[in-house]
Nucleic acid binder design. Structure first.
Length: 572
RNA sequence: GGCGUGGUAGCUCAGUUGGUUAGAGCGAACGACUCAUAAUCGUUAGGUCGGUGGUUCAAGUCCACCUCACGCCA
């Protein structure tokens, strides 16, 4: 038995994520977690909300709520939606947890001890009216280049020129609009990850089985320009983890917090601690997942994320871990995804373009989305969502190939033999051929799932479903019943067993439908079919079942058109 | 401007270290079946593999240049 630690990139707190975010990390991570559990392996699957930083503060202000309360509420909302999509996290934590406070401060302290923290004094724009320093992009003014009057301090959106906040003419706070700004000196901590460049480089080189997407991004950051640059890990904000050196005060850093990108990945570890606490487990229980000196040396750790998150996961977070000098677990495999586009453009949170997770669940059950998104996962390049493709895929794959298979065989049996697995007859060459085919295909499916080849797994699973229809079409029990009822009984018995077999194999993709299929077959045997012939005899003659409700209703043209219209512009 | 990733049948995508007539699903046409959510199964049609040039006995697969899309960075 292998032990799998699996984490999904943690979604930011300020709002509900869209389907592009879902397929980029949480959903494929869930697929893999469910598969590994099904194979009998020990799994700890973690995710959390990423709660610190200016965007959270501003979103809270817009909502007229204290930021802590806002985050607590949004965490609850995201957790509920995650349940709606059947994301099987062992724990859905929060980067604002006490555990993450302690760990983040601990790591900072260790890094400082090891000479990997630099204190740098720099100039930043301070807004007196807002009583805070302003990040570059929260300063607005007139672009000195093109005259656009809403240019941001980091870049002019109109002429795309890169700017410094001090370049702006008539600068003002994007938060309050105040022009009462001044440049002040402030001290910040930098993670000297450049000192670890060679070590990181060698480590990445050793990961020959990672997706090209992952290693090419990491390599670029390592070698571009002057190479890996040091990065600031603190900010002048109220909302965040107070800067401390372990449990000690950090002289000169009073009132400052760690920058989100530093504390967010540490939440992967803290989340395990939260999980243990929530379950009333001792510290050792989570440490055996994370500390190689405390039992984690046989853990296989896999991270899932969108390509925008790759630099943090391949460089910054490993730098934090390696730099601590402590035996924390480093990631073993890093699966990254490209973007999902929506109908010719990008999904956009700010513009409300595309489909958001809550809206998706509003119109269809989670299995529909899980199947389409996973079978079209943006693995080798960006992928595109269109309503036509969604309707066609879901109707064909789920309703026609899988759903209708369950329907046709259970209803056929009910009408000819009753709601009981029929006895009699023996298997002939057709049955042997089907079993041999499924044995091959199941092995290939497992191989693809093991390799996290999401699309190829879906493709193989679909072929496994289709094999059932091919078999029925070939042996035609409705015909043989007239001349040889015993043969028809054997054929029907095998086909009914396929329903349970499909339920087990399909569960990682479509957990609700799988559960309905198992319930319909009145079986609780969801064990992985290591032995395919045996698995196809799990329901013995005389075993009772019920014809399940229609598993997947089809998406009509009217639905499709209405939804395409509804999601074309801004969300309400 | 630099770098990265892509550009393969109408659509969505596979194509291992270069090697026999380039594959799958959907869609289309035709046929079979009638148990089933007008579902299923089979057959067929469809591609000068973004463009040009080069290396090679042989290139979708390597090299150069060009072009388009997307992304990251200056």
């Amino acid at each position: 038995m292998t032990r799998h630690l699996i984490t999904s990139a943690i979604p930011y707190i300020n709002g509900i994520k869209h389907l592009g975010n879902l397929i980029g990390s949480q959903l494929p991570a869930d697929l893999y977690a469910r598969y590994q559990r099904a194979r009998g392996n020990e799994v700890l699957f973690l995710c959390a909300t990423d709660e610190h930083g200016t965007p959270a503060e501003l979103a809270a202000a817009r909502a007229g709520k204290p930021v802590a309360q806002y985050c607590a509420e949004m965490h609850a909302v995201q957790a509920e939606i995650a349940r709606g999509f059947r994301l099987s996290f062992d724990h859905f934590g929060r980067s604002s947890s006490p555990q993450n406070h302690a760990l983040t401060q601990h790591f900072a302290g260790k890094l400082a001890e090891n000479g990997l923290i630099a204190e740098v004094t720099e100039s930043q724009v301070y807004s007196k009216a807002d009583g805070r320093f302003l990040p570059d992009r929260y300063i607005e003014g007139t672009c000195p280049n093109c005259g656009y009057d809403r240019a941001r301090g980091d870049q002019c959106e109109n002429c795309t020129k890169q700017l410094d906040p001090t370049d702006l003419i008539d600068p003002r706070s994007a938060i309050s609009g105040s022009t009462d700004l001044e440049v002040r000196e402030t001290k910040h901590l930098y993670l000297r990850q450049s000192k670890l460049k060679d070590e990181l480089d060698a480590w990445i080189d050793s990961k020959t089985d990672w997706p090209v997407l992952t290693t090419s991004i990491a390599k670029k950051w390592l070698h571009d320009g002057e190479g890996l640059r040091d990065r600031g890990i603190t900010r002048d904000l109220d909302w965040g983890i107070p800067v401390r050196k372990g449990t000690e005060e950090w002289p000169g850093m009073e009132g400052k917090v760690f920058y989100v990108w530093f504390d967010a990945p540490i939440e992967y570890i803290a989340c395990a601690a939260e999980w243990a606490e929530a379950g009333g487990l001792p510290e050792a229980d989570w440490q055996r997942w994370w500390r190689t000196d405390k039992g984690a040396d046989d853990v296989r750790y896999t991270q899932f994320m969108g390509k925008d998150n790759v630099p943090f996961h391949t460089l910054s977070f490993p730098a934090t871990i390696i730099g601590s000098g402590e035996p924390w677990k480093l990631v073993d495999h890093l699966k990254s995804f490209n973007y999902l586009n929506y109908d010719g453009g990008q999904f956009s949170t700010s513009q409300g373009r595309g489909i958001f997770m809550d809206q998706a669940l509003d119109i269809l059950p989670p299995d529909y989305w899980r199947w389409w998104l996973l079978s079209h996962a943006p693995e080798s390049s960006d992928a595109e969502f269109t309503w036509e493709n969604f309707q066609a895929s879901v109707n064909k794959d789920l309703a026609d190939v899988l759903g209708n298979f369950v329907s046709r065989i259970t209803k056929f049996c009910r009408s000819k033999f009753g709601e009981t697995v029929p006895d009699g007859g023996t298997f002939g060459p057709e049955e042997e051929a089907l079993i041999a085919d499924l044995t091959t295909r199941t092995a290939r499916y497992a191989e693809m799932m093991e390799a996290m080849e999401v699309r190829k797994s879906a493709q193989e699973l679909r072929a496994i479903w289709a094999a059932g229809n091919e078999y029925l079409q070939t042996v035609a029990p409705w015909s043989t019943f007239k001349t040889d009822p015993q043969a028809a009984a054997a054929q029907t018995r095998l086909a009914l067993n396929l329903v349970r077999f499909y339920a087990v194999l399909s569960a990682p993709f479509v957990p609700d439908a799988a559960a309905a299929m198992l319930a319909g077959m009145k079986s609780e045997d969801a064990s992985w079919p290591d032995d395919v012939p045996a698995a196809l005899a799990a329901l013995p003659p005389g075993h009772g079942f019920e014809v399940p409700e229609v598993l997947f209703a089809k998406i009509t043209d009217e639905n499709r058109e209405a939804w395409a219209e509804r999601f074309s512009g801004h969300r309400d």
